[in-house]
Computed example of a mutant assay.
Amino acid sequence: MNDDDLLARHFEEQRPRLRAVAHRMLGSAAEAEDAVQDTWLRLSRAGTDEIDNLPGWLTTAVGRVCLDRLRARGVRPEQPWDDGGEPPGPVDVEPADPEREAVLTESVGRALQVVLDTLAPTERFVFVLHDMFAVSFDEIAPVVDRSAAAVRQIASRARRRVQLSGHVEVDPARQRRVVEAFLAASREGRFDDLVALLDPHVVLRADVAATHQAATPEARGSAAVAAFFNGRAQAAVPAYVDAAPGAVVVVDGQIRVALTFVVGDRILAIESVVDPERVAALDVVVGEPASR
């Protein structure tokens, strides 16, 4: 198999995910297919010599294509969902229970409709890539020419708009219960339960200050992330961090550590924030009930 064939095979492996990203951003099956094809053309021109993380590169690339298309719509009204296909379902491509799939698909459709109707293109881009596909703020920032801190604020603003509309992809109360279950399993050292709550491709990211406290800068995969948290989180308490379910460690009345979670069907990503300036910039509400 030559290099071109290998590149095409890797791209086809990522096509379902890329189609889901594009469909959620654009709300049109036909436009999503066009965006995915444009992404393939970009990849074929770029090559892979300098691409360390091909799935991440492709996710960001298709998001950039969609952002350009959204901006090109200009002052025209947002386009409604078309009839060219069903709204995208879960990211996982393995077979799922049909009833559960239908519920999730309906939920995703409602959430995206709200995103399309209420969010500006940059907000939409940040919301979809981070909150639905766990792309880090550091990866998103160069695409929208903002700092990672500014992108975090954009995500928080978009998240609040979606939540206030009453239509979110996943019920916030359910997200909160997943986080609470994860913290309990972490404290009690229940490794298998931790793995069950994590997406197989989950990513744990830590800021520089956290790595100075012996945390790993990044860990990937449910087993690695579960091993890191197994027996930990003894002092962590549930909180809302930038309007999303999370957790904090409070010492002498000060937040020392903030954990943010991206929760889909399971936990897709966790970020550990320790740097005092970054922690101070977060909007944290501690001890909110799951029905918030």
Rank of each mutant, 00 (worst) to 15 (best):
N2Y: 14
D4R: 14
L6G: 13
L6R: 14
L6I: 12
L6P: 14
L7H: 08
R15T: 13
L18T: 10
H23S: 15
R24H: 15
L26C: 02
G27N: 08
E31Y: 10
A32D: 07
V36C: 05
D38Q: 08
D38T: 05
L43K: 11
E50H: 13
N53D: 07
P55A: 08
G56Q: 12
G56H: 07
L58N: 11
L58T: 10
R64E: 12
C66W: 06
D68M: 01
R71C: 03
V75P: 08
R76E: 03
Q79E: 04
P80W: 02
G85W: 04
P87M: 09
P88E: 05
P90Q: 04
D92I: 01
V93T: 08
P95I: 05
A96D: 12
E99S: 12
E99T: 14
V103N: 09
E106S: 08
Q113S: 08
V114S: 07
A120V: 14
T122Q: 13
D131Y: 02
F133V: 02
I140H: 05
P142R: 05
V143E: 09
V144L: 04
D145M: 07
S147L: 09
V151Q: 03
R152N: 10
A155L: 15
R160S: 13
Q163W: 10
S165A: 11
S165F: 06
E169L: 10
P172V: 03
R174C: 12
Q175E: 10
Q175T: 07
V178R: 00
F191W: 06
F191H: 03
D192H: 01
V195C: 01
D199I: 00
T211Q: 02
Q213A: 11
A219Y: 01
A223S: 02
A224H: 00
A224V: 00
N230E: 01
N230Y: 00
Q234E: 09
V237D: 00
A244E: 06
A244M: 09
V249K: 05
V251M: 15
G253K: 15
D265I: 10
R266N: 01
L268K: 01
L268V: 01
L268N: 01
A269N: 04
I270E: 00
R278W: 14
R278L: 15
A280E: 08
L282H: 03
V285Y: 04
E288G: 13
S291M: 06
S291E: 09
S291W: 12
S291P: 07
R292A: 10
